[in-house]
Amino acid sequence: MDEIIVLSSWGDRFWAWLIDVLLICLIWYKIIIVLEVGVFTISGILLLSSLLFIYWTSLEGYRGQSVGKMFLKIAVTGPYGEQIRFRDAAAESFGKAFLLPVDVLMSLILFQRSRQRLFNKISNTIVINRTEIE
Rank of each mutant, 00 (worst) to 15 (best):
E3C: 13
I4C: 07
I5C: 10
I5L: 15
S9P: 02
G11W: 07
D12A: 14
W15H: 05
A16C: 10
I19V: 15
L23E: 04
I24R: 01
W28K: 04
Y29E: 13
I33H: 06
I33F: 10
G38N: 12
L46D: 08
L46W: 05
S49Y: 03
L51Q: 00
F53V: 10
I54F: 08
I54T: 07
Y55S: 05
T57I: 09
S58T: 15
Y62C: 11
Y62I: 15
M70L: 12
M70I: 10
F71Y: 04
I74M: 04
I74S: 00
V76L: 00
Y80H: 09
Y80D: 12
I84K: 03
R85N: 13
R85W: 11
F86M: 10
R87F: 09
D88Q: 10
D88I: 00
A91F: 09
F94W: 04
G95N: 03
V102L: 10
V102T: 11
V102W: 10
V102H: 03
V104W: 06
V104L: 12
I109Y: 03
L110D: 01
F111T: 05
Q112S: 08
S114R: 01
Q116V: 09
R117H: 07
N120H: 14
I122A: 08
I122Y: 06
I126K: 06
